[in-house]
């Protein structure tokens, strides 16, 4: 009989964030599918009470918590100790967690401490014939595998946005505190965070639209001229009006070293595709992109995809986008921005 543990790190206010609620949906699906399985929730953070109340409606058999100042920091030493203690206290055989930066940092190591195994970047779970299967990608989103594990404990770390967040009733509720031995001297201290420079454009997972800028923006246009100076305000204008995420291909962030004109605001943090991110957004608009696999993996997880490109045979769009507009992106985006401004 499986004992499922939902392991989550709470937000600064003690609540459970969206990624945690998403994985709770997955945990409930597994509990439902595996006969006799029970669900335990384990929470780690500066405080965990609000989160405990938030999820009590899913009827966990236990809610375990580790809280305190030490656990306010997203830090390997304390997080791993807390996660290990909760997993042991829960006697969990299947441990589910959201793949936040904090969880991803520690949970494979924790799996080792538990003499178990971890699978990260899981994007689907399924139970069939009494057996749990998970789905994850290999080779930078080039192929998808369905996996089972014969050993326990099995730590399953799910990519954010893979499941619909759980919604259910909440009420104040208590949790069982789990004691965690904290070393006398912690060598690592988290001193804060550093936000991108003001106005910098990055991939923001919470936005509706991903705007993908392809190398075409920096190439010679129909009249033989390079028009980066015109491209930049068009792209920034669109991002400003829509609050979209900005992604770009590797060549867009690499070309600077070659003395080629580049979009000044593109950095490696914007890189999507083979060696960059594969963000998840409901919509994606690709402009001036060209390429086949592996270049197009950058928008593998974009639900609705549209592209503007002058080549109707473009490999980025053909068979991969829902709509391909064969037109000059400079002209279209200029008009799109005008219309967006008018409608504000």
């Amino acid at each position: 009989m499986e004992k499922i543990l939902l392991l989550a790190f709470t937000e600064t206010d003690g609540t459970l964030g969206k990624p945690g609620l998403e994985v709770l949906s997955a945990a409930l699906k597994i509990r439902e599918g595996l006969a006799g399985a029970e669900l335990v929730v384990g929470l780690v953070g500066a405080k965990v009470g609000p989160a405990a109340g938030q999820i009590v409606g899913c009827s966990p058999s236990r809610i375990l918590g580790v809280e305190g100042e030490h656990f306010s920091q997203s830090r390997y030493g304390t997080d791993a100790a807390a996660a290990e203690a909760i997993c042991k206290a829960a006697e969990a055989t299947i441990i589910l967690a959201a793949g936040t930066a904090r969880a991803n940092r520690v949970l494979s190591g924790v799996a080792h401490r538990l003499q178990g195994n971890a699978d990260t970047h899981v994007c689907g779970v399924d139970v069939a014939d009494g057996a749990l299967k998970v789905t994850r990608w290999y080779y930078r989103q080039r192929m998808q595998a369905v996996l089972q594990r014969s050993s326990r404990p099995w730590v399953i770390i799910c990519d954010p946005s893979s499941f619909a967040p759980w919604t259910g009733s909440s009420r104040d509720d208590a949790f069982e505190a789990v004691a965690v031995p904290v070393p006398d001297s912690m060598r690592t201290t988290v001193t804060g965070t550093q936000a991108p420079a003001s106005g910098a454009q990055t991939i923001r997972p919470d936005t509706e639209v991903l705007f993908v800028a392809g190398a075409g923006w920096t190439k010679s246009q129909a009249d033989g001229k390079v028009k980066v100076n015109e491209a930049e305000p068009l792209i920034l204008g669109f991002l400003d009006l829509t609050k979209a995420s900005l992604g770009g291909s590797k060549s867009m962030v690499d070309l600077a070293g070659e003395g080629q004109q580049v979009l000044s605001f593109m950095t490696h943090l914007n890189q999507i595709g083979q060696t960059g991110a594969t963000p998840r957004h409901p919509k994606g608009l690709a402009t001036c992109c060209h390429g086949e696999e592996p270049h197009a993996v950058g928008w593998r997880f974009i639900n609705e995809r549209r592209a503007i490109n002058k080549d109707p045979n473009c490999g980025w769009a053909q068979g991969k986008a829902d709509v391909l507009y064969v037109e000059d992106a400079f002209a279209v985006m200029a008009r799109v921005n005008e219309l967006l401004k008018e409608s504000k």
Partner: peptide, 30 residues
């Protein structure tokens, strides 16, 4: 690990190619 399956993703989408629309029409649609 037991690999139940490993496969290439289903990539083909039926792409609607808009070739003869004006910039204005495309911009409005977007």
């Amino acid at each position: 690990l037991n690999f139940v399956s490993v496969r290439l993703p289903e990539q083909r989408r039926s792409t609607r190619i808009v070739k003869d629309a004006t910039v204005e029409e495309i911009a409005q649609e977007i």
